[in-house]
Amino acid sequence: MSADFWAGYTSGAVGILIGNPLDLVKTRLQAGNAAPQTEPTGAVIGPARAAPQSFRQHFDRAGTLVKGTTAPLLGYGALNAILFMTYNRTLTFFNDSPELPTSLAKVWCAGAAGGLASFVVSAPTELIKCRAQVSTDHATSSWTIVRDVWKREGIRGLYYGGGITSIRDAYGYGWFFWTYEWSKQAVSSPTDTDRETAIKVLLCGGLAGVVTWASIFPLDVVKTRVQTQLINAPLYREGERETLLQHQAHGKRLSTLQVAQKAYQAEGAGVFFRGLGICSIRAFVVNAVQWAVYEWMMRLLRQT
Rank of each mutant, 00 (worst) to 15 (best):
Y9K: 03
Y9N: 11
S11L: 04
G12K: 08
L24A: 13
A35E: 09
P36C: 12
G42M: 03
I45V: 13
A51S: 10
P52G: 06
S54C: 07
H58L: 07
D60A: 14
A62K: 11
G63H: 02
L65A: 15
V66Q: 04
K67G: 02
T69H: 12
A71K: 09
Y76D: 13
I82E: 00
F84M: 14
T90Q: 07
T92W: 00
F94N: 02
L100Q: 12
V107N: 05
W108I: 01
A113H: 05
A117T: 04
A117W: 00
S122I: 10
T125F: 07
C130W: 09
Q133T: 03
T140Y: 04
S141T: 15
V146D: 08
V146I: 13
G157K: 05
I164K: 04
T165A: 14
S166P: 03
Y171G: 05
E181N: 14
S183E: 11
V187Q: 12
V187N: 12
S189K: 10
T197V: 08
T212E: 11
W213K: 12
S215D: 11
S215E: 05
P218C: 10
V221G: 07
T224C: 11
L235W: 02
L244Y: 05
L245F: 04
Q246F: 13
H250M: 10
K252V: 08
T256R: 05
T256H: 02
T256L: 00
Q258S: 04
Q261F: 07
K262C: 10
A263M: 12
A266I: 03
A266N: 02
G268T: 08
G277Q: 07
F284M: 14
E295A: 10
M297T: 02
R302K: 14
